[in-house]
Amino acid sequence: MVLEEGRAVTKTTSAAAMGSTSATEKLLQKHQENHFTAGQVVRDVIMGVSDGLTVPFALAAGLSGTSAPSSIILTAGIAEVAAGAISMGLGGYLAAKREADHYMRELKREQEEIITVPDAEAAEIGDILSQYGLQPHEYNPMVNALRKNPQAWLDFMMKFELGLEKPEPRRALQSALTIALAYIVGGLVPLLPYVFITTAEKAMLTSIGVTLTALLIFGCLKGHFTGNRPLQSAIQTAFIGALASAAAYAMAKLVQGA
């Protein structure tokens, strides 16, 4: 009789668990969170476009201060855009590769610790969970469950102990290409007036207007995606670009006068 009751209880508990799981799945399907998940790509685009708009802009302004013809300024600007895109892309590749290598080193070390000192690692799980306000009687079942699943245990330690997310396999190459292409797109903007206007001074004035407009738009978009105030971000971005070009122009005039 007890056995039958035990079975009945087991069946009831199992049915309740299945019902709870089904209800949870339905809730998750209805509730769709619109979190922004393309942070790394946006960071690469921001890095490439901001430098692409600023550096060639400052170079063109500086050369305009030397009374160089538009053709020379355009040639120098295109050369700088090509070199800058390669340099920035390579820098993005190496940075992403370094992050991936660091993750793999820490992953291997954590795997060894789980094997060699499992009790210490389990204690670390409890310490981490206690920081979220859980008591030992609450987190001990979670610790035991993770110990039975080595892969989940490893993933937990990497994320919550070390704060490391697993990098995407092609992250380094994607970062390099994104930054390089963004730099080229941004770098061509201040150079376009020199394609159509032969007089360097007139081309420079047009370039200033076009580039400042582009910087304002880009700064506004950057503020929107990064969570900052769009107007404030637009003004800051345009100010930095204008300051860089003014410094380059003044330096060129100073050197020319000397």
Rank of each mutant, 00 (worst) to 15 (best):
I72S: 09
Y103C: 03
M104N: 08
I72F: 12
G92V: 00
E112G: 15
T66C: 11
K97R: 15
R105C: 02
I78M: 15
I72L: 10
A76P: 00
T75G: 13
E112A: 15
I72N: 14
G89H: 07
A83F: 04
K97Q: 11
T75S: 12
E112Y: 05
L63P: 00
A79V: 11
H102T: 09
I86R: 01
A58N: 06
Q111L: 10
A79E: 08
K108L: 08
Q111I: 09
I73D: 03
M104V: 08
L94D: 01
Y103L: 07
T75Y: 06
Y93M: 13
G65Q: 09
I73Y: 03
K97V: 02
I115D: 14
E106A: 11
G62S: 10
A76Y: 03
A79I: 11
S87C: 05
L90H: 08
R105M: 14
E112C: 06
I115M: 12
G92T: 00
L74K: 03
A58E: 10
H102S: 11
A96N: 09
K108Y: 10
A95L: 03
A96H: 05
I78F: 14
K108G: 07
R98T: 07
G91L: 04
L90G: 15
S87H: 05
A82R: 01
T116M: 15
L74M: 09
E112Q: 14
P69G: 14
G92C: 03
E80Y: 01
T66Y: 05
I78Y: 01
R109M: 13
G62F: 06
G77V: 11
S70L: 10
A100V: 00
D101C: 00
E112D: 11
L74F: 12
E112P: 00
Q111W: 11
M88W: 01
H102L: 14
A68V: 01
